[in-house]
């Protein structure tokens, strides 16, 4: 039932504007949940609409289970979409809304109603069948929209920032719901979001898109441990970049020779390390540094450390108390150092 989705060199531009999407290629395996992540205006919604059939790509191919669907109208793609707004049909009741897709496929009213009620149970909205959309809260409406998409048993489930209009608590609840539904139904799901945390929590794999171009496509951990470029690292909150010259297993930097795990290609390289990975201890890859600023965040304290003209950020547990001007020994563990701009 769930399908394999492939995008191959998909480009799209609106009129004469700069391309919204530039040669996007990625594959989503059956039953996989992939997040299209990126800042607003990066083309991720455009990509989703191309998959849904609401936009025709200016170039490239979209395949579902190996068959090109570029010429297929949206109603025959079996790719149900949930939008940022619930977009419930205001003149229909909740049950009618959920049964809409089935009715469009020729189901009888009673059958559509029965399946709609079942779908409403799956999103825990069974008590609201007789209501009209206007009587529901935003979160409830979005649950109904989710049920409306799921009831058609789509081959692809497309979610376009469906929770971004909800408040934080509700958003978390909805994430859990989507995860549960996706595990139960095994739908191949593409989820668009600008929220890095949401992508990490939900997705099997994340496709990070900047300016219509795919930057990196990998599992969430890889974006923290092995970012492809400086931009990717920065988007995921890694702010430490150290330039140096690689020579086999170590890199000569202003902070001294830093040993790596594994080797780097010889030449100019940039190293990165996540603020949480910086240690305050002696040993390999350690150096003296001075605290230049502190900010207390409750569960963590963020410090800026200055050493040899380089600024490093360190996130440490709150029981470590340092003041501005303190001299410390900082260590960058070899296992946490990552060489950037390696092309995959």
């Amino acid at each position: 039932m769930s399908a394999r989705l492939e995008l191959e060199n998909v480009s799209h531009r609106y009129g004469n504007d700069a391309p919204a999407l530039e040669k996007l290629s990625l594959a989503v395996e059956p039953g996989e949940l992939v997040a299209l992540l990126g800042p607003s205006g990066c083309g991720k919604t455009t990509a989703l609409k191309v998959v849904a059939g609401l936009l025709r790509p200016t170039a490239g191919d979209v395949r579902v289970d190996g068959r090109s669907v570029v010429g297929t109208p949206p109603e025959r793609r079996e790719a149900a979409m949930v939008f940022q707004k619930p977009l419930l049909f205001p003149h229909m009741g909740v049950t009618e809304n959920v049964g809409f897709g089935l009715r469009m496929r020729g189901a009888r009213k009673e059958e559509a109603g029965r399946k709609a009620d079942e779908a409403l149970r799956r999103v825990r909205m069974e008590g609201f069948a007789g209501r009209s959309p206007g009587e529901l809260s935003g979160g409830q409406q979005q649950r109904v929209a989710l049920a409306r998409a799921l009831v058609t048993e789509p081959r692809l489930l497309l979610l376009d920032e469906p929770f971004s209009a909800l408040d934080a608590n509700l958003r978390e609840e909805m994430r859990d719901l989507v995860l549960r539904l996706q595990r139960e139904g095994g739908h191949t799901t593409v989820f668009v979001t600008h929220d890095q945390e949401e992508a990490v929590v939900l997705a099997d794999r994340i496709a990070l898109i900047f300016d219509g171009r795919l930057q990196m496509y990998d599992c969430p951990e890889a974006f923290y441990d092995r970012p492809a470029t400086r931009e990717v690292a920065r988007f995921f909150g890694a702010t430490n970049f150290i330039d140096g010259r690689a020579n086999d297993g170590s890199v000569r930097t202003p902070l001294g020779d830093l040993r790596l795990e594994g080797t780097a290609p010889p030449g100019e390289v940039t190293l990165t390390i996540r603020p949480e990975a910086v240690r305050l201890e002696g040993g390999e890859n350690s150096f003296r540094a001075r605290v230049s600023s502190t900010s207390y965040l409750g569960t963590q304290v963020h410090y800026e450390l200055r050493a040899a003209g380089t600024t490093l950020r360190a996130a440490l547990p709150p029981h470590v108390r340092l003041a501005v001007g303190d001299e410390v020994t900082a260590r960058l563990p070899a296992t946490s150092l990552w060489v950037l701009d390696r092309r995959f």
Partner: peptide, 16 residues
Amino acid sequence: GELEEAARTLGASPWQ
């Protein structure tokens, strides 16, 4: 046009 887009992805033809 968003409501219509939603309807289309749910299986409605342009006329429907």
